[in-house]
């Protein structure tokens, strides 16, 4: 089995089988990391461009490592150093990359839909590394991989996503993916940070975390951005912390094997307490490791690889 499209633009556009394929392909790649030589040859001779219009350390380095461990050549372009700063349009940048025969363009952009524009314009495989408040599919995949690895399944699990859902591409990708895999998804946050009609995506909305904390299998805590306070979306960070912050106290009633996740970077003491972040239920650092394996799987599969090929 192979992926159906040349691009990975969002989890909305993948089906259950494709998500399964990516997760299963990521597994052997993760096993590679325990070896002294972590590099394999499938993308030798291929060029992966990391086109980042938004500052990002975590996602960019994760993609860079993933590409390098697959033996691809990696080119980093960030908005501050490129012709973007000189006012070149996204489409012109895309055409330039096409002319340079890039095989993959991994794009991070502050505006929703930018990867779609690239995918329409050029023949390279486009991987969305986060576009505005639309999607961050590889984050969704690595979150699902982490849950799947720990729990052995996704179907039937109860997953809460807590925080600023409105501005979160991570939330949207998780919702699409988890729903397709048969998990039950709750979103929890201030009413002003819950996007309109999100229940139509197949989630339940809660404004009180304590109401559902005891039944959760997974809690995925989103970063709360300081700017949102200025937009009057909530009155103060300390009020946010009191009502939605995930603390040991709040987790007292939670299941023992609850998984605590966070896509990072964290605001300790605001959406998550330090002791929860460091606690036994936390898989936050493992998410980072899994991110590389999942991104390797995505690049490998988009290059036309299949599961059988990898095992061989």
């Amino acid at each position: 089995m192979r992926l159906k499209n040349k691009d990975l633009l969002g989890l909305e556009y993948l089906d259950r089988e494709e998500i399964n394929l990516i997760l299963e392909t990521a597994k052997p790649f993760k096993e590679l990391f325990t070896r002294s030589v972590k590099k394999v040859p499938p993308l030798r001779g291929k060029t992966v461009v990391l086109l980042f219009y938004e500052p990002s350390t975590r996602t960019r380095t994760s993609f860079e490592l993933a590409a390098k461990r697959l033996s691809a050549d990696v080119l980093n372009i960030s908005a501050s150093t490129s012709s973007v700063a000189k006012g070149e349009s996204l489409i012109d940048t895309a055409k330039t990359l096409e002319a340079m025969k890039a095989d993959f363009v991994v794009i991070r952009h502050s505006m929703a839909g930018a990867p779609q524009i690239l995918a329409r314009t050029i023949s390279a495989s486009i991987v969305n590394a986060g576009d505005g408040t639309h999607e961050h599919p590889t984050q969704g995949l690595l979150d699902m991989f982490t849950i799947w690895e720990k729990k052995g399944r996704l179907s039937g699990l109860k997953v809460a996503i807590v925080g600023d859902i409105l501005h979160s591409r991570v939330a949207r990708s998780n919702i699409w993916g988890l729903n397709k895999m048969g998990a039950k998804v709750y979103v929890v946050g201030p009413a002003t940070l819950i996007p309109p009609r999100i229940e139509q995506m197949g989630v339940k909305i809660f404004y009180d975390l304590d109401e559902i904390i005891d039944e959760l299998d997974v809690i995925n805590i989103l970063r709360i951005q300081m700017e949102r306070q200025k937009e009057n979306l909530f009155p103060s960070l300390r009020e946010y912390n009191e009502i939605f912050g995930v603390t040991d106290e709040r987790l007292k009633r939670a299941k023992k094997d609850l998984l605590v996740m966070h896509p990072g970077p964290m605001n300790r003491g605001i959406e998550i307490s330090s002791s929860v972040a460091e606690g036994s239920r936390s898989v936050i650092t493992e998410q980072v490791t899994n991110g590389i394996a999942v991104r390797m799987a995505v690049l490998y599969l988009l290059a036309g690889g299949d599961k059988r090929g990898m095992k061989r």
Binding site: E12, A112, G113, D131, G132, T133, H134, E135, R169, R172, P195, P196, R197, I198, Q200, M201
Partner: peptide
Amino acid sequence: NEGFTSTVLGLKGIP
């Protein structure tokens, strides 16, 4: 337009 589609697309809606 603000609604389900704007939520899915991650675009800011106008109610």
